[in-house]
Amino acid sequence: MNPFDYARAAGAAAAVTQVAASPRAKFLAGGTTLIDLMKLHVETPDTLVDIGRLPLDKVEAVAGGGLAVGANVRNSDLAYHDAVLARFPVLSEALLSGASPQLRNAATVGGNLLQRTRCPYFRDGVSPCNKRAPGSGCAALGGHNRGNAVLGGSESCIATSASDMCVAMAVLNVTIKTQGPKGERAIPFADFYLVPGETPERETVLDHGELIVGVEWPALPAGAKSHYLKVRDRASYQFALASAAVVLEVAGGVVTTARVALGGVATKPWRVPDAEKLLVGRKPTAEAFAAAAEVATKGAVPRTFNGFKVALVRRVIVRALETVAAG
């Protein structure tokens, strides 16, 4: 790690001021991404403002049955929260499928929203990587790209979004609350992440010094069921090869609400609105699910070693939908 100054934040506003004041300053929360990448010299902040003890640690009900969750709520605490277990199983399942108990005890909601890619060429510190060193090229395009994205990529970057939690949050219609140098914002989840395009170093719409203070989402439709399904080589402690978060409401024998988001295959948590539209109004049959899965992967660009993910994620979508439809 390069040398840096460490300070504990006195409060959210003070933290924002401290980080905003220095272009190389960063917020430190659970540290599971940032410290890892600092050891790899991929992240090189000169100042860390530790927000880990700010009291952004509440899970609170909001009117209408939604939840408001502080940015510092640990992944494990959120996963086992009664309201999440009871009403938003997709989120609990996604959180518990990620990393390990130790990492989930440290990782925070705010931090996980900003979890960075596992692309090996990003992490290695030396290979061409437009995300790490803009303009240097992308070693993954012609390299070992089994873990890379088939959706949302560009010729500049095919780095996969690594988070499981974010895939679930994509179908919960989460709003991300921030506090920054320019004031407070509420950013719809769908607007939060950027696809790489020609600027893969920009991953979100956050400004420098803008702090995520929490997330909030509304209740699911009354009859909706939700589920997260993740496929990987190892039975645990591995990032997704392909995953799907689904919300499905069936009334009168037809789908009335459908939300599907994909993980492990795309450059950001990947909602598939065309697939969702296709499902609404149709009977929840295997044929409908397969058709939706087909639409969900339209435009997928397979690379040398990740082509199987296109078929795999379709099957994951179908299985996830079948599971909630049967449940």
């Binding site: 090996p120 190892r234 039975a235 990032f239």
Partner: peptide
């Protein structure tokens, strides 16, 4: 000639659950 998965997240050894 660089080893691409030279860590214990990407070189997968069995974990308890396996």
């Amino acid at each position: 000639g660089r080893l691409v998965n030279a860590d214990l997240a990407e070189y997968m050894v069995p974990v308890h659950a396996d």
